[in-house]
Each structure stands twice: as C-alpha cells, then as structure tokens.
C-alpha cells in the first residue's frame, strides 16, 4: 500500500489522536457496523448499539491494532463487530434457543433479502461468487457469518456431520477468496 494511501493517512491521524479521524470513520462505517451487529445479534438486537460503541471505542483506544497493509478499515471494523456480536450472543443465549432460532431461520436465509441483493448487485466479485455458490455452501456460510453460529451449531441445525459443514464452508470461502484476489490483480 502506498505511503500516501487514504487509509494510511487516516490511520496516522487516528494514532496521533485526531478526533475528527474517529468521526470520519464513524460516519463512513457505523451504518455497516450497526447493520452487521443487528443481524448477528438477532433477537438480542437491542445490544447492537453497545457493540457499535465497543467497536469504535476500541478503534480509538488501540489505533495501532489497525494496519492498513493488512486490509481495509471496513473489513477490520466488521471483523471486530462480528466477534463482539458473537461473544454477546453466545454469552446470553442458551444453545437450545439458538438452535431453534437457527432452524426457524433456515427458510429466511434462503430467501433472505441479502440474497436478492447479491444476485442483483454486481458491486464485487465476492458477492457474485457468493450468489453463484451451490446452495449448501452458501447457506452454511451465511449461517456462520450472519447468524454467528459455530460450525457445530450449523451442523446441528442442518442435520449434517460437522466435517461436512467445514468442507462446504471451506470450499465456498476459497472460491470467494480466489475471486477477490483475481479482482485485485485485474486492471
């Protein structure tokens, strides 16, 4: 990444304690952070704003943890969001309730508005690949990511062996990774 890339310049400002750098990041990324937190938290969506605060306070408190050479700020923030939301869900929800919810959401996942968005939206190669994945791979990935389910919980919800779920998720994720890499090296 070049020395004068926007993320690198912004990162230096954040490390230097520039409050406006934090506000810019918030205005750019808070809607996505809150959207993902709400999605993962599900019935605990009331805690999504707490996750939003956790994420941006931590970004400010440990600005050196974000390395622009390792990825985009959006990806860094969403990864942190996912972890925080999953921690909360797993701390508060009993396994039985989560699996019941996951079972109920199976149909939702397959007919999810995001799915329609993915098929219509050609914003990125990753999204196109996701839309074209075999449904068993796509559903397993969506349950793990959007619902915050562990491999084990996905396996139970789908009534499949955990090894099968791992294989499906790995296969789908590898395809999306390859698509992203190809997109990044293309002119």
């Amino acid at each position: 990444m070049p020395e004068d890339s926007p993320d690198r310049i912004w990162s230096k400002r954040l490390v230097a304690g520039d409050e406006n750098a934090l506000r810019e990041a918030y205005r750019d990324h808070a809607p996505a952070v809150l959207g993902l937190a709400t999605r993962v938290l599900g019935s605990f969506g009331g805690q999504a704003e707490d996750v939003l605060q956790d994420v941006f306070v931590r970004l400010w408190e440990h600005p050196d943890h974000f390395d622009p050479a390792r990825g985009r700020l959006r990806s860094y923030l969403l990864a942190m969001t996912h972890s925080r939301a999953v921690e909360r869900v797993r701390a508060e929800d009993s396994q039985r309730r989560r699996l019941e919810a996951a079972g109920n959401q199976l149909v939702d996942v397959a007919t999810d508005p995001t799915r329609a968005l993915t098929t219509l939206d050609s914003r990125s190669a990753v999204q196109r690949v996701l839309a074209d994945l075999p449904s068993e791979q796509r559903i397993a990935i969506e349950m793990a990511y959007y619902r915050g389910l562990s491999y084990r919980d996905v396996a139970i919800a789908l009534a499949e062996p955990e090894g099968t779920v791992r294989y499906r998720i790995r296969a789908g994720m590898q395809k999306m990774r390859a698509a992203l890499q190809a997109e990044e090296v293309s002119p």
């Binding site: 996505a32 704003e49 959006r74 990864a79 995001t114």
Partner: peptide, 17 residues
C-alpha cells in the same frame, strides 16, 4: 486477514445509527 477481507465484501443491510 485474507478471509476477513473476503467477509468484509459480503452484503450487509446497513442501519443508520
């Protein structure tokens, strides 16, 4: 990090705070 970057490209229904 590479896989987190992949996940960062997945569609999200944004929610305005």
């Amino acid at each position: 990090d590479e896989y987190r970057e992949v996940l960062g490209h997945l569609p999200i229904a944004e929610v305005s705070p």
